[in-house]
C-alpha cells in the first residue's frame, strides 16, 4: 500500500459533509432536544435541562398505545412473514419450473410504493365494496368493518404488512438456501432421511443467520411503520388512534403539535430499541459463524 496522505479526505469530503450535517448533527441534536423542557423553535429558549420529556411520554397513553401496538404487530407480522416466506423459499429452491417467474412475482411488493399499494389495500379492505369481504362472504363470513372499527384496525395493518414484508424475507431466504451445498441433500437422500428431518437438520441451520437477520430487520421495521398506516387510514392513525405507531407518534408530536422535546425523547427511545436489536442480531450471527 502506498504511503498515507490526506488526499483520501479530498475524495471523502462531499459524502462526509452531507453525513455530518444531515446525520451526525441531527443525531446529537435529537439527544439534546430530548432533555430540553419546552423548547421553543423560534427563539431557541427552553425551561430547563431535565427528564421531563421522557416522563411526559411514558405517562402519555398515546405513546404507551403506540408501543403496545408495535408489540402486537411484531408478534404477528414477523413470525408469520418468516414462516410463510420460508415455505415459499424452500419450494422455490426445489428444482421447479418457472422459478424465475415466481421469484419475480414474489419480490414485486418490495419495489412498489407503500403509499400507492397501501391505498389499494385500503380499497380491498373497504367494508361495503371491498374485495376481501366479498371473498369472505363465500365462506359465510359476515361483512367485517376492517378499517373503520377499533377492533379490526390493527389486524388490517398486520395483514397488509405481512404481504409487504414477505418479499424481502423470501429473497434473502432463497439466497441463503442457494448457498447450502447440494452434497448435504444428496447424502441425506442416500440415507433416505425423512423430509421433515432434512428440513430441520440441514435447511434451517443452513439459513439460520438469514432467519435471525429477517427476525431483527422485521422487528426494526415494525418500530418504524408509518407509511403503511398513513395509506390505509388516510393520514390518520386508525379509528380513535387504534393503529398508532411509534413513528406516527413522533411525527404527530413535532409536526402537528410542535413539541420538539417530546418528539425527540420518543425518537431517542426508538433509537435505543433499534440499537439494542441490532446488537442482539450481531451477537447471534457472530456466534454462529
Amino acid at each position: 500500500m502506498e504511503k498515507k496522505s490526506m488526499k483520501g479526505y479530498l475524495y471523502l469530503a462531499p459524502a462526509l459533509i452531507i453525513i455530518l450535517i444531515f446525520t451526525i448533527y441531527p443525531l446529537i441534536r435529537a439527544f439534546m432536544l430530548s432533555f430540553m423542557e419546552d423548547y421553543n423553535l423560534v427563539n431557541g429558549s427552553y425551561k430547563g435541562i431535565n427528564l421531563e420529556n421522557y416522563i411526559d411520554i411514558f405517562q402519555d397513553r398515546h405513546f404507551i398505545k403506540a408501543l403496545t401496538n408495535t408489540g402486537i404487530y411484531v408478534v404477528f407480522v414477523v413470525p408469520c412473514s418468516i414462516a410463510l416466506s420460508l415455505i415459499i423459499a424452500v419450494l422455490l429452491n426445489s428444482h421447479i419450473r418457472f422459478q424465475g417467474v415466481f421469484q419475480t412475482i414474489f419480490f414485486l411488493p418490495y419495489v412498489t410504493s407503500t403509499i400507492a399499494i397501501g391505498i389499494v389495500w385500503g380499497w380491498i379492505f373497504n367494508s361495503d365494496y371491498g374485495l376481501l369481504n366479498q371473498l369472505l362472504s363465500w365462506f359465510g363470513i359476515k361483512s367485517i368493518p376492517w378499517l373503520t372499527s377499533k377492533q379490526y384496525a390493527l389486524p388490517s395493518l398486520i395483514i397488509f404488512s405481512i404481504w409487504k414484508s414477505m418479499a424481502f424475507d423470501i429473497l434473502i431466504f432463497l439466497a441463503g438456501l442457494q448457498t447450502i451445498s447440494e452434497d448435504l441433500y444428496n447424502a441425506a437422500r442416500v440415507d433416505s432421511t425423512p423430509r421433515w428431518r432434512v428440513f430441520w437438520r440441514i435447511t434451517v441451520p443452513g439459513i439460520g443467520p438469514m432467519i435471525s437477520y429477517a427476525f431483527v430487520m422485521g422487528m426494526i421495521n415494525a418500530f418504524k411503520v408509518y407509511n403503511e398506516v398513513y395509506a390505509l387510514f388516510r393520514g390518520k392513525n386508525g379509528p380513535a388512534g387504534s393503529a398508532n405507531t411509534v413513528v406516527f407518534y413522533i411525527y404527530d408530536k413535532f409536526y402537528n403539535q410542535s413539541k420538539y422535546g417530546e418528539a425527540s425523547a420518543a425518537a431517542v427511545i426508538l433509537f435505543l430499541i433499534v440499537l439494542g436489536l441490532t446488537i442482539i442480531q450481531r451477537t447471534l450471527t457472530g456466534k454462529k459463524e
Binding site: 435529537a30 418528539a263 433509537f271
Partner: peptide, 14 residues
C-alpha cells in the same frame, strides 16, 4: 443503525 426517523426532526428545523 440510526433510524432516519430520528433525524427528521432536526433536519426539518434545518
Amino acid at each position: 443503525m440510526i433510524p432516519s426517523e430520528m433525524l427528521l426532526i432536526t433536519n426539518f428545523i434545518t
